[in-house]
Write a protein that binds this DNA or RNA. Structure first.
Length: 397
DNA sequence: AGCCTTTGACCAGCG
DNA sequence: TCGCTGGTCAAAGGC
């Protein structure tokens, strides 16, 4: 990142560097605008091991964590669900990558380059827990939705060369869905105007495909093998294969009418490391700070300003012991966060999915074989209702 | 030349 | 058995 950072800064006045605090200081982190709501949910997959540096590693660590293993069994007991993307990941498989994962789903590389949610190498081994690390990634996924449409136009031309080099390692090796269905983050003032200026017609005139056909430059190479308009989502769904030889990983990407990614589902696990021999990989490597930074990564926003990070979500993470949802899966939960009063969380363990939605954040759905940890997302949720949802045998609060 | 996207057709699962 | 739906295939074309 260091090498092309300069180019990126041409259009981005500054990139505030955020050093991730220890988990106990998560509030500091999120005070900068990265609301952790959906993040801690994801983060709870992870143990406290700090030996992973990439998203893949984080996930691998999460999957290998005792809790996950236990949850696996428990989840299977829950109903022997036919989880849509039950992975066949070898237990021993550890995807070791460089400690950089950057581009979130839903943001073109160029968009992400200037995105305030841009991340550089993880802090994980140095004061950042896996929860936080993954939370950051998820935050990128969430927040990027807000900036994508705005930034595409402004950055496509000037940053095309440098963007891909910034992309790295968002390796969702688990069955992970990031589903920012509702982009509700209050747009920063700096981008609100731009957003409004980017009219619908402008957006339509945009080569959306160019900006979004590669929604996630996660370090892997993807080959699109199909695209459909699925009825259940109304959105256009694209199917991608990892282009690596014999790699079984696939992903589905759903986009709304604006071309914004609304859902990403990863299936399977890479049986290889992130390719580094191709140009993109090379660029990404070039973008990596350096080996020193790899060893001592820091969280860095590539965004324009802190202002871009300014949203109304001051959703800070309370202590995990404050998690109040007492759930007996499978069920779904709707409620508002006691911390910020925003949004709700819903847990559908019958499908082993968890989705969070707050007023200020996109919806994020994580599919996993584990549900127990998801119930303790570190937030306090206030139950404000309960009912049986049509089509569901389970109560909803 | 190689890899990618596009897109209609095909297939399998399900009710 | 049939129709619907989601997922995949594969040919064609583009970069």
């Amino acid at each position: 990142m260091a090498t092309t950072d300069g180019a990126a800064r041409v259009s981005t006045p500054r990139r505030p560097t955020i050093t991730l605090p220890p988990r106990s200081a998560a509030e500091t982190l999120f005070a900068d605008g990265l609301s952790p709501g959906p993040l801690t949910m994801v983060s709870n997959f992870f143990s406290e091991n700090a030996d992973f540096s990439s998203f893949s590693q984080l996930l691998a660590g999460a999957m290998a964590s005792p809790s996950f293993s236990a949850d696996n069994s428990s989840s299977e007991n829950v109903g022997g669900e036919k989880f849509g993307f039950r992975q066949n990941r070898p237990v021993s498989l550890v995807v070791a990558h460089s400690p950089v994962f950057i581009v979130p789903p839903g943001l073109s590389p160029s968009g992400f380059l200037n995105s305030p949610v841009f991340l550089s190498p993880l802090q994980s081994p140095f004061g950042m827990t896996h929860q936080q690390a993954l939370a950051q990634v998820t935050a990128q996924a969430a927040l990027s939705q807000c900036y994508m449409s705005v930034q595409i136009e402004h950055q496509a031309s000037s940053l095309a060369a440098s963007t891909e080099s910034l992309t790295r390692h968002q390796s969702f090796d688990s069955n992970t869905t990031i589903q920012p269905v509702h982009t509700m983050i209050s747009e920063p003032e700096s981008s609100t105007m731009e957003s409004s200026e980017v009219s619908q017609s402008d957006r339509k005139s945009l080569p959306i495909s160019a900006a979004m056909d590669k929604p996630i430059n996660d370090g892997y190479n993807w080959r699109k093998y199909g695209q459909k308009q699925v009825k259940t989502s109304e959105y256009l769904r694209s199917y991608y294969n990892c282009s690596h030889l014999n790699c079984p990983v696939k992903k589905k990407v759903e986009r709304n009418f604006d071309g914004k990614i609304t859902e990403i589902v990863y299936k399977g696990q890479h049986n290889h490391e992130i390719p580094q021999s191709n140009k993109r990989a090379k660029d990404r490597i070039d973008m990596k700070p350096n080996t020193t930074n790899q060893a001592k990564p820091e969280l860095r926003f590539q965004g324009e300003t802190e202002m871009s990070m300014t949203n109304e979500s001051s959703h800070s993470l309370p202590g995990r012991d404050q998690a109040s949802t007492q759930l007996t899966p499978p069920l779904q939960v709707l409620g508002s966060c006691c911390t910020c009063g925003n949004g709700y969380t819903e847990v559908g363990t019958s499908k082993l999915t968890v989705s969070y939605r707050t007023v200020t954040e996109p919806k994020i759905v994580v599919q996993t074989r584990s549900e127990v940890d998801l119930l303790d997302d570190g937030y306090k949720w206030r139950k404000y209702g309960q009912k049986v949802v049509k089509g569901s045998a389970h109560p909803r609060w």
